[in-house]
């Protein structure tokens, strides 16, 4: 059963990829990002923190693919090593937002009434703020640490999951299979957790993937304005912020390469969404 189901899944994954080349491309980029995140520090040619005044601000060359920055650090090494931190922040933020948000939304959608009203107003309150400003406020108030960036990003993403879960649960609340589950002796909580919630996963997957890209952008944005991650830690947002000062004087590579990395990461997650949905939806499997 387990072996055959793994095989089935692999066959299905192959089908999803071959049917949609965009998904295959996204998967390839995703693999690249994951490799960079896991093995990045071991792979890079230079120590990302090592400064060398004599080699400052060198343009891209065979020695330094992406050039060096104002302190003589290798930009390529820094861009690759930064992947881990950015990915961790967004992954943690999205995981928290997904778990709490979808739980809140599912309860609101299933039970309705007061549960729905309270969560609904709470979410409206969060949504009423310009989200980036809210994240800035949270980090500024709670303290300038990486953890707080994660929490801030999670909070601003939470309403999207909650609203989606609420809608998806609500339309299935009176479905035939839910009534059948009730006749089989399932209580409310079990029906919600085992019968309804798993059925909301395919659309949620798209949301998760889109959100990953957005969370990376958000974390980088916070670092860009000087909140959260602090120099000299390699992080895409900080690198763009630092590099921005040198663009006017013609040293474009400082900001360009981390910017491209950021864009590619966001692009990858946005493209990955549909593929992920097809992967977790059993109805797409034949």
């Amino acid at each position: 059963m387990s072996l055959s189901s793994v095989k089935n899944f692999a066959r299905h994954a192959r089908y999803v990829m071959t049917e949609n080349p965009v998904t295959a491309l996204a998967a390839l980029l995703f693999l690249l990002i994951v490799i960079a995140a896991v093995a990045g520090p071991a792979l890079v040619p230079y120590d990302p923190m090592a400064t060398d005044g004599g080699r400052a601000l060198q343009p891209p060359s065979w020695d330094h693919w992406f050039g060096t920055d104002h302190l003589g650090r290798d930009v390529f090494s820094r861009v690759v090593v930064a992947t881990r931190l950015d990915l961790m922040i967004s992954l943690a933020a999205v995981a928290i937002a997904f778990v709490i948000g979808s739980a809140m939304g599912a309860v609101a959608g299933y039970f309705g009434g007061w549960a729905d009203r309270i969560t609904g107003r709470l979410l409206d309150t969060i949504m009423a703020f310009p989200l980036f400003v809210l994240a800035m406020g949270v980090v500024a108030a709670a303290g300038n640490t990486i953890e707080n960036i994660v929490y801030a990003t999670a909070i601003i993403n939470l309403p999207f999951y909650a609203r989606m879960a609420r809608a998806e649960v609500n339309i299935r609340r009176h479905a035939g299979f839910v009534q059948a589950a009730r006749l089989s002796g399932n209580g409310d909580w079990r029906i919600l957790a085992q019968h309804i919630f798993p059925n909301t996963l395919p659309p949620m997957m798209v949301q998760i993937s889109l959100n990953m890209g957005w969370a990376i952008l958000n974390a980088a944005g916070l670092s860009f304005i000087g909140l959260g991650v602090r120099p000299p830690t390699p992080e895409w947002g900080i690198m763009v912020a630092e590099g921005a000062n040198f663009i006017v004087s013609g040293e474009w590579w400082l900001a360009f390469f981390p910017g491209v990395a950021l864009m590619l990461a966001v692009f990858t997650f946005n493209l990955l969404g549909d593929g992920l949905r097809d992967l977790v939806d059993p109805q797409r499997r034949t």
């Binding site: 035939g176 009534q179 006749l183 019968h195």
Partner: peptide
């Protein structure tokens, strides 16, 4: 357990997952 039911729409009454 003594009271059970067969639903009208066989598709709708089975959990798709």
């Amino acid at each position: 357990a003594g009271l059970q039911m067969v639903f009208q729409d066989p598709t709708d009454s089975l959990n798709p997952r």
